[in-house]
Write a protein that binds this DNA or RNA. Structure first.
Length: 874
RNA sequence: GGGGGCAUAGCUCAGUUGGUUAGAGCGCACGCUUCACAUGCGUGAGGUCACAGGUUCAAGUCCUGUUGUCCCCACCA
């Protein structure tokens, strides 16, 4: 048999184990009518991405769930993929081209796309390799990229269906424009921050009058596009201006003063410049008053030809100049500091410019409704459910979705314009115009928002719109695991897309987790430089330690802090398991019997009982996605019950020289070890697989083993409870020795008044060993155990230990007195309940009985303590 | 302005549907070369569960309010 190394070193085997899983096809999910499918779609990481801590946690959680389900006998599919990330990738490639002294425009669309694909081939696979290092058990044979043929077909189908239903339209609306990326963005792609700015007060002269009206603005440059000034209709200060004409400074235009309820008289000056082409509110006001829309800015954020002397200037340079010019004209009234919300491009952080532009939109209201209903009706469940509120909040306040992007890398919008004016929307590229027959068709230049294809992910990956065997078997999916920050971008959109296209919710459960923060609770970010690279952690501690540290002590949906200390304690635990396994294996020198053929001792029944309870609790927790609770429970069982107690309890049998006893002990040790490893496997797959390979007998991979099942016949509840008395006895002796500073090596003589002599006798060797005792003698109640004796009431009986000179009677009297007070307190507390008629009447019978039993126990303790105190006083 | 989270031991956090004496890890104290493991073993100290009300036989847990703190959304120019 192979020998295990003395210390756990993940570098020895993690890579090898992963290779083995791959070679033996362990991750492959088959369509098996005899099994129930369980499907998880991996949120596809961007091809621009590198694995970060957030991914590490997200993927670990998915891997735990999928390994658990696989072991439970489901046909468990975890489908991996990567996302083309239209904007992010294009942004990166454009930067690269720039550094090479060229640009996407000079390359042209075709060449640019060729480079983009090359880029994808070169870097897009990096994250896949990183996922493998983490131990992800995804079905790589189904790896999908969002621009694969199957996804492209799904995108076209989805677009056409929505268009045909009238839910996609093209129109000129105010959209968020990023002047750096030179594309439109959706509302969700704009990040608002509270930025310090100024409030510039400008005076606009009234035509044919000496009067002026003062407006306040945060964006002076937009005044060149003003087509009105609005005041509140009830504002006495401005009533007489309404209907008058203003001379817009720096231009030769005349603009009206209009009355509109939108204006808040209490804010600013109470008069608002209206720039319908560059502000969403003003756009609405413009519509109401039929105002012209004048766009004064180009796609790159410079002022356009309509801006006269300011044409060609960057928007901020123009702002400066305009303020200067207004000052020269005596029309600058004042400048006051003003902080306000400014939208930034989530990709490049440039200040987003709201402007009117012709774009493609998805009409959201009809799609949002069913998506809300599905969660209301519990067809899809958020875990934890508080995130449903956030989901509702988003969908209830949703605006139409701007889906066109002025980008080349992505799914090109399947729309063609004919020279005759016809717009053709088609699943297949049309050759000629169906109306005029012309072959001069131009495809829409724009691409779709990345999230348009991500929204289809749960089914496009399975071959939809075809009814492929995969789609029919694995869809709808079961669990989606993602962070709360992705709800508006993705979860929501998958929901309404799934319902709209497949008439089914795309997933049954949405498991939401929080962010991984740094050890001070700050978000990990590039700018702060406080990010920890998961791969560094894996290199130092192994993937198992990282995985375990990311899911222990974390409540569902809550943010968590990453600390190296947590990884260390995970590593320590794994080392413990490693050594416990090594201990069991180094004692195996014979054929180990099956549990069924072993005559179980009380200690055996106790550990098996504990194992069963653990199996039950862990299974229930995992089914509820309580990964943290399940992990805590498992660690507690493995470390405390199994390693610290049972292994120590088994030593007399192992070393006692009786081969039959040794065989029996080994049988139980192996049984518990095997089950513990299986339970731990979803969390720490590598080390459990490695240890598994050392276990005696012919066996396959632990990854493909059945998950342990709770077995009522092995629950031994009563016996386990009784055995706790032995443990309590041992703990009491240890505590007594510490109390009197008795060296651990000094063996003590125990005297016990107990009704459970048999239980004590059977475990005598263990008790002597673990308590550091030389002998146990039974005595009768009231019988003396000698002078200078300490006593303790334990679960199993009244314990007396003669400790000779170590005993300080006075100190002991004080301790007993304190103990007596505590016990009396407990009795009073129990009485408080039991003497309360309402408690006795309304609480469950079990509760009342338990309370009575407790009181009896404490009364008994009280008597014994008093007896000892009397003894000392004599 | 709207929505949500959090407040429990020195620190980081768990605490399922209300029900034993509120837990863990780290840290701290004392003691241990016990033949798997010092990445270890044993024993222990440490909490009026933010505050104030309420519901209940029973509240860390449910309800209302207060305070502190963090986050998300929002078109106050």
């Amino acid at each position: 048999m192979k020998e295990m190394q003395t210390t756990y070193d993940p570098k020895d085997f993690e890579e090898r184990i992963y290779q083995k899983w791959m070679q033996e096809n362990c991750f492959r999910a088959e369509i098996d009518p005899a099994k129930v499918p369980f499907t998880v779609m991996m949120p596809p990481p961007n091809i621009t991405g590198k694995l970060h801590m957030g991914h590490a946690m997200d993927e670990t959680m998915q891997d735990i769930v999928i390994r658990f389900k696989r072991m439970q006998g489901y046909s468990a599919l975890w489908l991996p993929g990567t996302d083309h990330a239209s904007l992010a990738t294009e942004h990166k490639i454009v930067e690269k081209l720039h550094s090479e002294g060229t640009s996407k425009e000079s390359l042209g669309r075709e060449e640019f796309l060729r480079r983009a694909w090359a880029w994808k081939e070169e870097y897009g696979g990096e994250i896949v390799e990183q996922l493998k290092k983490l131990g992800c058990s995804c079905d790589w044979s189904r790896l999908t990229f969002t621009m694969d043929e199957t996804c492209s077909r799904a995108v076209r189908e989805a677009f056409c269906r929505l268009y045909e239903k009238g839910l996609i339209y093209r129109g000129s609306r105010i959209i968020n424009w990023c002047p750096d990326c030179k594309t439109a963005l959706s509302d969700e792609e704009v990040v608002h921050t509270e930025d310090a700015g100024f409030f510039w007060h400008f005076a606009y002269p009234v035509e044919g009058s000496e009067e002026k009206i003062v407006i306040a603005t945060t964006r002076p440059e937009t005044m060149l596009g003003d087509t009105a000034v609005a005041v509140n209709p009830n504002d006495e200060r401005y009533k007489h201006f309404v209907g008058k004409t203003l001379l817009l400074p720096l231009t030769d235009r005349k603009i009206p003063v209009v009355a509109d309820d939108y204006v808040d008289p209490a804010f600013g000056t109470g008069a608002v410049k209206i720039t319908p082409a560059h502000d969403p509110n003003d756009f609405e006001v413009g519509l109401r008053h039929d105002l012209p829309m004048i766009r004064i800015m180009g796609d790159d954020g410079t002022m356009n030809d309509l801006c006269g002397e300011f044409a060609g200037l960057d928007r901020y340079e123009a702002r400066k100049r305009i303020v200067e010019r207004m000052k020269e004209l005596g029309l600058l009234v004042k400048i006051e500091p003003h902080s306000h919300n400014v939208g930034h491009c989530h990709r490049c952080n440039a200040v987003v410019e709201p402007l009117v532009s012709k774009q493609w939109f998805v009409k959201m209201a009809p799609l949002a409704k069913p998506a809300i209903d599905a969660v209301v009706k519990n067809k899809t469940k958020f875990v934890p459910d508080r995130f449903a509120k956030i989901y509702f909040n988003w969908l209830e306040n949703i605006h139409d979705w701007c889906i066109s992007r002025q980008l080349w890398w992505g799914h090109r919008i399947p729309v063609w314009y004919c020279e005759c004016g016809e717009t053709i929307v088609a699943r297949e590229d049309p050759k000629v115009c169906p109306v005029c027959g012309s072959a001069h068709l131009n495809q829409e230049e724009d691409c779709l928002d990345t999230w348009f294809s991500s929204a289809l992910w749960p089914f496009s990956t399975l071959g939809w719109p075809e009814h492929t065997p995969d789609f029919d078997y694995f869809y709808p999916t079961d669990a989606l695991v993602t962070g709360y920050d992705i709800i508006p971008f993705w979860v929501m959109r998958m929901m309404f897309s799934g319902i709209e296209y497949t008439e089914k919710v795309p997933f049954r459960d949405v498991l939401i987790h929080g962010l991984v923060r740094d050890e001070h609770g700050r978000k990990m970010s590039k700018s702060l430089g406080n990010g920890v690279d998961p791969l560094d952690v894996i290199a130092k501690y192994g993937a198992d330690s990282l995985r375990l540290s990311l899911v222990t002590g974390v409540a569902p949906g809550n943010d968590t802090r990453f600390t190296e200390a947590k990884v260390e304690s995970a590593r320590n635990f794994i080392n413990k398991i490693w050594n416990a396994s090594r201990f069991v294996l180094m004692n195996v020198d014979c054929e180990v019997p099956d549990l069924k053929s072993i005559r179980l001792q009380p200690a055996d029944r106790w550990i098996i009982s504990r194992l069963m309870a653990t199996i039950r609790e862990v299974t229930v927790s995992l089914q509820k996605y309580d990964l943290g609770i399940a992990a805590d429970r498992l660690i507690d069982f493995a470390w405390n019950d199994f390693c610290d107690w049972y292994i120590e309890l088994s030593k007399p049998a192992l070393y006692g020289g009786d081969p039959e006893k040794k065989k029996a002990a080994l049988g139980v040790l192996l049984f518990v070890l095997e089950n513990t490893l299986k339970l731990l496997h979803p969390y720490i797959p590598f080390v459990t697989e490695e240890i598994w390979s050392y276990l005696p007998g012919e066996r396959g991979n632990i990854i493909s083993e059945d998950y342990p099942r709770y077995n009522t016949k092995l629950s031994y509840k009563k016996e386990a409870k009784a055995f706790e008395g032995v443990i309590d006895l041992i703990k009491t002796v240890r505590a007594m020795k510490v109390e009197v500073s008795c060296p651990p090596s000094r063996k003590v003589h125990l005297f016990l008044v107990t009704e459970q002599r048999r239980l004590v006798c059977v475990n005598k060797q263990s008790i002597l060993r673990l308590a550091g005792a030389s002998e146990i003698d039974f005595i009768e109640k009231g019988e003396q155990a000698g002078d200078k004796t300490l006593s303790h009431v334990t679960e199993i009986g009244h314990l007396f230990v003669p400790l000779g000179d170590l005993v300080d009677i006075e100190k002991e009297k004080i301790r007993l007195q304190k103990e007596l007070e505590r016990v009396m307190g407990e009795i009073a507390r129990a009485d408080g309940k039991l003497l309360n008629k309402n408690f006795v009447a309304k609480a469950s019978k079990k509760l009342v009985d338990d309370e009575r039993a407790k009181k009896e126990k404490y009364l008994d303790m009280k008597e014994k303590i008093e007896q000892q105190l009397r003894l000392f006083s004599e």
